[in-house]
Amino acid sequence: MNPHRRHPFIRIAALVVYFFLYAPIVMLVLYSFNASRTNILFEGFIPSVGPLQMEGSLVTQSPCGAFHWFCELAKNQEVGVAARNTLTIALTSTFVSAIIGTMAALAMQRYNFRIKPFAQLSLYIPIVIPEIVMGIGVLTLFSQLFAIVNNSLGLAGDARLTLGIGTVIVSHIAFCVPFVTLVVQARLQGFDKSYEEAAMDLGANELVTFWRVTFPMILPGVLSGALLAFTLSLDDFVITFFATGPGATTLPIYVYGLLRRIITPQVNALSTIWIGLVLVAVVLLQRLQAREAK
């Protein structure tokens, strides 16, 4: 019996679902090269390179040629700031949550301690409650806390504590940690304790054993946990929406703001870049997994 044999119905259904998944994405990318400013129909690529020329709603010539909207995007300073904020937040919260999440995973998998059931519960909650609940929770916490601190210390002007990148990072860590912990814990489940015993048997103390043996062996798990945290943070809209303040706009927040006001092919250009980066990341990930599988 060929295990790879699939019913024609399955093949057709799979094709339809893939079409459903990709048609909007392909359309987004295609329209980022659209000569039409109104973005209703695809009116072809911008044909020539040169000083900007327009005919009605069509761009007929641009210094960047077909990449007109990408150049427009590059001139947009708000996007630059938002991109930098997004990356700062994602990298910082990934770094912190990878470290403390790995520690927590070790504790949950290896040790028995009194508060373990409570810790387990608190790690499950963010997974099973809607993000908005946590979002308004942190908003309430920070606004009440900052009001108390600002008033009692008499802080004024720029010295006042406000929502911003700091509050976003702290909140992102909170929702990333449970996922890192789960991923690393899954790796630790298959971890044979005799590797560590062997290291200690050969003269390594607990710290040396961790750094020379345990850590290298769970590193793939830690990395995939960190990768998950990174994508969660990069992608997050809801919690950022509530935890952020003036000057701390991230890309998703920026795009959301645009959508409510105006649609321009610049957004398509931004989407195309994002999708391109995702493609690169996915291919890299696949290479990494293939290498690990060897």
């Binding site: 927590a104 504790a107 290896r110 301690f113 373990k116 608190s122 963010p126 860590i173």
Partner: peptide, 20 residues
Amino acid sequence: KSAQGTLLVTPTLLWMIGLL
């Protein structure tokens, strides 16, 4: 062993208590 486990889980737990 119990103290080791508690120590390892403490940062995460503080975070979950503070922000959840």
